[in-house]
Amino acid sequence: MRIRALVKRIIRQFGRDKRTLAMMFLAPLLILTLVNLVFSGNDYVPKIAVVSKQQQIAEKLIEADKAFTLYKNSDDAMNDLENAELDAVIEFNPSSTKITLEGSNPTANKMALMTIEKALKTLNPKNEQTQTVIKPEIDYLHGSSDMETFDYIGPFLIGFFIFFFVFLIAGVSFLRERTTGTLERLLATPLRRWEMVVGYVLGFGIFTVIQSAIIVTFSIYVLDIIMAGAIWFVMLITLMLSVTALSLGTLLSAFAKNELQMIQFIPLVIVPQVFFSGLFSIETMTDWLQPLSVIMPLTYGGQALRDIMIQGGGWAQIYDEVLVLAGFSLLFMMLNVLALKKHRKL
């Protein structure tokens, strides 16, 4: 009953703050779109050299896509690749097929690989045996296959922006409850501390459900991000992440005196999660830094989102991450109930 009153109030209050609503729902869309534009050049046409002794295959490829150019020998091709006039060279030898990528631009790498793959598929029906037996060998002139593109960082970014905006908005709202004196007023009522925390999580939770739905739908259908798994799992994970951010934000607002101090938590809480939760390779980090990723909610959220969106994983792959995120939320909520003790012992 009391929790319901709290939830109802938060919905009313928040629904009237159009600007904050826009920040929660639209700002992540804007940033994701920008990142998408920066990282994925869908219109990019790679330049690929074909070196082959078998005329037939070479002609087929050149016919299949305008990206391919025929080169007489591999030395010329390699030279042009070195001078960045080409993005990739594909060599057909009797025993093997070798692809060499220029490698410094992830977008070009990816487009070149995709173009080759598509072209090889068109060769397939006629040349079934050779193509299935011979897997092309991929070499990089510069860089390596680890270079990421939007498809790789996208799932992580979805999780990150949801986490970031929910953390900030929930934290500031809860803080305002304190600075305007309404927290004290509420603590003069028989409202229990846990009822207050649960009421907040539920009230805000409704907005985060809407937020998750909007961001996930937008990323998949408008930004056309890679999506191998089920959309419901993605929404589940983003929702779990936002509940974690919500409970963490309200918890930390207890340690901030004003909005500015709440914003000061961003470099402490949010930024490290960008570096330590899997956007960058953790294995190559200094040993003592590596365990840090274990305590970061985004490690689990980002991993689960990748499992679903890139690898097409289902419940079996993500349930442990769901449990960890639920555990984080529960922990933060319990700590918040304790933190409120500062304001009322009972």
Binding site: M1, R2, R4, A5, L6, K8, R9, R12, Q13, R16, D17, T180, G181, T182, E184, R185, L186, T189, P190, L191
Partner: peptide, 21 residues
Amino acid sequence: SDALYGELSGKENLDFFASIY
């Protein structure tokens, strides 16, 4: 301090506190 929710109407404020009680 006036511990009220500025975004809400007077009636909604009263409604909230009444429900809490």
